[in-house]
Amino acid sequence: MSGADRDEGAPIVPGSPLARALDGYVVPGLSAGFADKVLAAAANRPPLLPELRRNDVTGTARGWRLGRRIAIGVAGFCALASAAAATGLLERVGLPVPSAGKVWASITGDEPASAPAKPVVAVAAAPVDPAPAALAPVRIEGLIDTPEELAEAFRRIDEVRKGRSELRRRLLDERIALEKERRAAAGLPLPTPEQEARIRQRLEDARLRRERMLNERIEARREELRERVESGEALTREDIMRPIHQEQRSLQQRVKLERLRQMSPEARREALRQLPPEQRRALKEAWQQQRAQRLGREAPLAGEAPVEAMPEARVQPEVSPSETPPDGPPR
């Protein structure tokens, strides 16, 4: 600010030309009766509207209201984000969602415990070959007329059976892992380690029981075949494989029939209705044969449950596509 500016902004000195000019600004007085006019207007003044509520509250209440809105907003955002993460929406748009374990590991600096997730990744990355070399169908060409050739055929069959058994066990593990992952993604409760161990033990017991029954029958059949070879008979492929298939079918049918017996009549009827006609027919025949054996006559007794009333909700394929007897548990 220059000196001239400072002088121009200085107070106006009384008696100066500027002061004399300003003093000439005469103000006329108020009109007569001004007070009465104001009082009359005041008397006709409408009452004031009540104050707005927001002007009436204290700072604390206003702060709490603001805080509550912020809290509701944050909670809503968290709920939406959680829903998006749970439904996989974020991953679909390319936003990786770390698990709580990874976040905790990044905070604490520990290695993430990602071991349980590895089998799932491995399954997705490398799908199991449906027909690996060890599971290839057993090929028997020509006649078998020596015990060595028969033993070799049995060895190959056992090898394939063993490979299939391993494959089924692995598929079972993968299926359990996938189911656990699905339940975790959907927010459903996961089985405890004790529950999972019990389920696995039950499945393993069922598998062993079926395998034992099948082995007993296969071994009896093999003993018969060995006797035939030792007696000089030449066996064909059908002589070896067909009885195995028949045994397998018979075993499966017995299991199914046992299940059907345990169902209520309505459930049995419904389960049978859902079966393919050929399976329904086969079950009917097996049922009749069992009854005939048990009762010593061909036809079932009048008044007993009809064969059509027998169920099987889910039936395994009767014949293995690889021409070897399946030894897995019927599902």
Partner: peptide, 30 residues
């Protein structure tokens, strides 16, 4: 009212409006 009238008049330069402003101020006080 007198001092208010002087302020209002010197601000707006009109006697009627100055009086109107003073009246409005008094009514707001009321």
């Amino acid at each position: 009212a007198a001092i208010l009238n002087r302020i209002a008049y010197r601000m707006v330069g009109n006697a009627h409006e100055a009086e109107d402003i003073v009246q409005e101020a008094c009514l707001r006080l009321w």
